[in-house]
Amino acid sequence: MTTIITPKIKISELNLSIDKQEILKNINVEIPENKITVLLGPSGCGKTTLLKTLNRLTDLYDNVKISGSVILDNEDILHTKSDITKIRQKMGLLSQRPYPLPMSIYGNISYGLKIKGVKKKKILDERVEHYLKEVNLWEEVRERLHHPASALSIGQQQRLCLARGLAVGPEIILADEPTSALDPLSSQAIEEMFLILKKNYTLVLVTHILRQAKRIADYVVFMYLGEVVEQGPAEEFFSSPKMERTKAYLKGAFN
């Protein structure tokens, strides 16, 4: 059973090398809209690099060579002439550990709104409350919105970072092992949130946790040494993998 799905992002023939060392080799992936796409693969296979290519954080690397295309909304973001900050605003990033901004809790959420030009305090207040509620943080912090974000626990900080990303109004959420620094309860909270968020957003999630992938993935991309070995809808991928490498990985033969 294959349903036709509209790709939100289309990656074609993407190659990336740093200092002449090939890191991504001929990647062709279509990321479906309003689904959770999980990138799986052993450590060092290029998952983080692929994720960072999507919002051009690879611009920060020295001596990097990229070829191929990443099409988002009919625009090749690798070769576009339009403002990269606008493109990045279409994608929220959730990293392995939270990096709150050195401001208050309120300041963290309103930051993205303010750089987009929202000035009215009333609108800011309302939006801050809205996004904090969306990530289930409102009840925990409503009394101390103007306290520094650094005082929150790591799990709360991660939810704050998610809310901060949502406040910018993205269409896509990129998450790089977002639960690896969290306790089981906070991880579960993030997972449940993703399942709700996929109604309105396209999610790309890197994870090491097979069980997590099984729980929430709609589409799976399995990478090995910079190449995509196998990809497909989650059910198919987990129940009847085609490639030997995939079978070995799913059995836990290598990590």
């Binding site: 954080l57 920060l60 900050t85 929220g92 990033l93 990096y99 750089i115 910018v168 990129l174």
Partner: peptide, 17 residues
């Protein structure tokens, strides 16, 4: 940490901001 720079860029901030 470079993660803070990456997070800030992802929010769509310019480098001056």
């Amino acid at each position: 940490p470079s993660g803070l720079l990456e997070s800030s860029l992802s929010l769509g901030s310019t480098k001056t901001e």
